[in-house]
Nucleic acid binder design. Structure first.
Lengths: 117, 117
DNA sequence: CCCGATCGTTACGGGTCCGTATCATTATCG
DNA sequence: CGATAATGATACGGACCCGTAACGATCGGG
């Protein structure tokens, strides 16, 4: 069964969630960083710099820098692939999992409130 | 009727929309910038720097800088308030309205696909 | 009129990020 | 072997953004 949502509801949901993220002092992630974070947490491993760059349609340095920042925030971790030492595997972290879970709660919560529009 | 969505669906929706925004070469807006943009387009005018700062729980320079960028992108416009010339009124633009509309379509479209999970 | 309050902007030092080009490291295959 | 390919990181000049503090412009009340 498809998820029914009207454009006006979609926008209100989008705004409310972003408002909460800002107000709660969460890290001010860009769309790119968010896309990377969620891809790592939702798609099956392994995740590499090259793979992410291809999926997002951006260059490799963009991914490297985003990983620098997300790593500094503790939301993701890098590990050398021992099988092929050219590769770097991007891994999840406890803090990252919590942040993603929190985002999911935020969305579902605001979705409930948005019923009547 | 409340909008029913499960956490796993919420995350998939969030990822898909962000992925589209990145892939389509849209401006890489931060959470703060998105919150400002949607607030201006969804809430009743007038919008001022001070009012936005209070709503988002950030300082005034944050709003000023975000308006610099969003203005440069053509998504918002500034105008001096002639009644009280200390104030600046933030206004919508055609390009901004289109971008917001496009975001709404993106969300509703992906919501439809996400039914079975 | 003038003095305090209010508004948005700017200055500052420091961090992040951009795209392009180049790099070192590692793997692969003739 | 050695040459080539592939991966992720780095250098670069330039742009953006941060938080704190100060600023000029404007309004309003005594």
């Amino acid at each position: 069964m498809p998820l029914e949502i009207r454009p006006s509801q979609a926008l209100r949901l989008w705004r409310q969630v972003h408002l909460d993220l800002v107000q709660d002092g969460e890290a001010d992630l860009s769309a790119r960083q968010t896309a990377i974070l969620l891809t790592v947490y939702l798609e099956l491993p392994p995740h590499t710099v090259r793979g992410l760059a291809k999926q997002l349609g951006v260059t490799k340095p963009v991914i490297t820098r985003a990983l620098d920042t997300l790593g500094k925030l503790g939301l993701l971790a890098r590990k050398r692939d021992e099988a092929d030492r050219r590769n770097v595997v991007i891994q999840r972290t406890v803090a990252g999992a919590l942040a993603v879970e929190r985002l999911a709660d935020l969305v579902t919560e605001h979705a409930k409130e948005i019923g009547a529009s």
